[in-house]
C-alpha cells in the first residue's frame, strides 16, 4: 500500500511539474510577437521594414516608404574582382588565411515612395541557406562611389546601387560545402524583427558591368 502511494505521489509530482513547464514555456513564447517572412521575386519592389527605425521618428506609418527592387545578381572570383576593381587586394587571400573568395554583386534600386525625404540603408544581408555576410562597404563604395552606409533620398526619387558581398572558403566547414555554395539559391534579406522581407535571387550570373546612381 505504502509503495502504491509513493508511486502515485511521484506520478502526481511529475504531472504537476510537466503541466507547469508546458504552461510556462507557452506563456514565454506568447509574450513575443509572431514572426513573419514576406517573399518577393526579382524586379518586384520589397518594402524596407527598417525605414521607420532609420528616420528616428518611431512612426510606424513610415514603414515601407523605402522600397528595394532587385534588378540583377552576379558573381565572380578573386581574379575577376581584381579586374573589376583595379588595384584591389584582399588581405585574407593575399596572406593565405583564406584560399579563395567569391564576390557577389546585387543591383538594387532604392525608391522613396513618401512625399518627404527618407533615409535608406545599404546594409542588406545576402543569404544562402545558413551562410550570410554583410555588405563589403569599401568595395561597394569603390564601385558605385556611393556616399555611405545610410543615405538620404528625396521624396519620390530612386537610386540604383550595386551592393557587393564577399564569401570566403574559410567560412565553410569543408571544401565540399564551399563548392556547394556556388550552386545554392541566394536571397537578399532585410531583417527587422519580427518581420523579414526577402527577394529570391536564385543562382548568380557571371559578372556584367552596369550603371548606377540616380535611376
Amino acid at each position: 500500500m505504502k509503495r502504491a502511494i509513493g508511486i502515485f505521489g511521484a506520478l502526481l509530482v511529475v504531472a504537476m511539474g510537466t503541466t507547469f513547464f508546458v504552461a510556462r514555456v507557452d506563456a514565454v513564447n506568447k509574450a513575443y510577437p509572431e514572426q513573419h517572412s514576406f517573399i518577393f521575386p526579382m524586379h518586384e519592389p520589397m518594402p524596407d521594414p527598417r525605414a521607420s527605425a532609420l528616420d528616428n521618428s518611431d512612426d510606424p506609418s513610415s514603414k515601407g516608404d523605402i522600397t528595394v527592387t532587385v534588378d540583377a545578381f552576379f558573381s565572380c572570383d578573386y581574379e575577376g574582382l581584381k579586374t573589376i576593381v583595379p588595384g584591389y587586394t584582399n588581405a585574407l587571400v593575399e596572406s593565405g588565411d583564406a584560399g579563395e573568395l567569391r564576390a557577389y554583386f546585387v543591383d538594387v534600386i532604392f525608391s522613396n515612395t513618401a512625399d518627404q525625404p527618407r533615409r535608406f540603408s545599404l546594409d542588406l544581408d545576402l543569404v544562402a541557406d545558413y551562410w550570410t555576410n554583410g555588405l563589403a562597404l569599401d568595395l561597394c563604395q569603390r564601385i558605385t562611389e556611393n556616399e555611405g552606409l545610410t543615405n538620404e533620398l528625396a521624396a519620390g526619387t530612386k537610386r540604383k546601387v550595386r551592393l557587393v558581398y564577399l564569401s570566403y572558403d574559410i567560412q565553410f566547414n569543408s571544401d565540399l560545402e564551399w563548392q556547394k555554395q556556388a550552386t545554392r539559391d541566394f536571397s537578399l534579406v532585410i531583417g527587422a524583427y519580427p518581420d523579414k522581407c526577402l527577394t529570391e535571387l536564385g543562382k548568380p550570373k557571371p559578372y556584367q558591368a552596369g550603371s548606377w546612381g540616380d535611376a
Partner: peptide, 24 residues
Amino acid sequence: MLFLPLVLPDPVAGIFFSGARMWL
C-alpha cells in the same frame, strides 16, 4: 526554455552562430 522564447536561428539575426563550424 522557462525564460526565453524558442525563436528559431536565422542567419540575419546577428545573435546566432556563423562561420565554419561542425553541423552549422
